[in-house]
Structure formats: C-alpha cells, structure tokens
Design a protein around this nucleic acid. Structure first.
Lengths: 97, 97
DNA sequence: GGCAACCGTCAGTCTAGGCTTACGGTTAGC
DNA sequence: GCTAACCGTAAGCCTAGACTGACGGTTGCC
C-alpha cells in the first residue's frame, strides 16, 4: 500500500499494467528523470508489485498479476466487513425510521 | 490511494472497517497523539474513504463501503489487464519452449 | 452559569523520502 | 578493443507532510 501511495509510482504502476516497458521509455513519458524512475521501480519491486527481466541492454518491468490479486482480495474482505458494519450502524442510529 | 499510503492512516482505516469509532479511542490504540489522528481522519474524509457523524460530544468515524467498492473495482480491472499482459509476454519470451 | 469531556485547527518543528547530478557497470555492434 | 546505449547506485539537496503542544469551540451534566 505504501508503495502505491506516491503519485509518480502509481503512474508508473498503471503504465506497467498494460504490458512490459523499459525504464527509459517510462522516464520519457513522465516529468521525472530516469534515475527517479529507476528508484521507484526498485520500491515497487521490493514490494512485490512488479517483476523485471533483462532483454539485451534493456530491462523490462511489468506488473505481477498475483500482487494485484492480493490487493483485490484485501479490499474484497474489507468491502464485506465495512458493508456489514455500515448496516449495523444504520440500524442503531435510525434518523427517520 | 495517496490517502492510504501512510502507515498510520492505513492503521486507522483498518480499525474503522470494523465499525464506527470515536477519535479519542483511536488515538489511545495508536502511538500518535489525538490531533494527529484528527488530521489523518480529515485526509481520509476528504478522500471520501470515511464518513463521520456527531453523537453527543463525540464524533464517530466509519469506513464508507462505497469507497472500498471503488478501490475493489480499480484492482479488479487491473487484475484482468495485468494477467492478459503477463500471458502475452510469456508467449513472446518462451525460455524453455 | 460553571465544569468537564471531546474534538478541530493553528503554528512550528523535524524527519522521511522524492528528485537530480554524477559515476560506474553491462551489453550490443563494428 | 572501442564506442554507444541502457541501466542501477551513491551523494546531496530540498520540500511535503507527519507530529506535537496550545488554543478555542461545542455538548452534556449538575
């Protein structure tokens, strides 16, 4: 979660969802330098959100679907829980019924 | 996403999933002061993640299920997309046949 | 009215971390 | 071997923002 908190990192993440991309290409589309992108990618990689592989002199990064699945499950559980708590609170605090 | 990036804010958010809580109670469970919790709650509220209501002299905060639903949908779409891109990349880069 | 409990906001401090520049390492092509 | 392209890392700067202490406002109770 902390990894996706930064706007730049989220922008990188969203681009990597579409498919594998090299570092330089990402930096060209973003208002930050290439090293900055490289650092963000390291954070995303350490968080397990992206994977990388070398292709020639370039390095391709891509979103790991399994990590997204875990985030999905995280909010799935929270949705059920918050919905139940919300109904519960609505019953105890009836404003017009 | 930025709102949930901070660890303290995430801790608050996770507690509010279980049900409505007053500010002072949250502050008692966390290693930060009450004003800090109040400020975090403001951020969460501005982001639309939580809702609040006054009950006597206290103010109860709670997670808005609809906001969680949106986050869920966000990662849902990304999951499909990243999975498709992942398979695609695997076909183009067959390491062992 | 007076007191206590609970909370939001302001001002100020201080640290985490995002960014850039500079450097070195690796790979492809000749 | 030489050059160029691509990238990761280190050092340093600097701003956003997380936190605290102090204050005032509101509500409930006697």
């Amino acid at each position: 979660m902390t990894a996706l908190g930064d706007p730049t990192r989220q922008a990188i993440f969203e681009r990597l969802v579409e498919g594998p991309r090299p570092v330089g290409e990402l930096a060209g589309e973003l208002p930050v330098s290439r090293p900055a992108v490289s650092q963000h990618l390291k954070v995303l990689k350490d968080a397990g959100l992206v994977v990388d592989r070398k292709v020639g002199t370039r390095r391709l990064y891509q979103v790991d679907p399994q990590a997204v699945a875990e985030l999905r499950a995280y909010f799935d559980a929270f949705w059920d829980q918050s919905l139940a708590a919300f109904r519960d609170a609505a019953e105890k605090e009836p404003q017009d019924g």
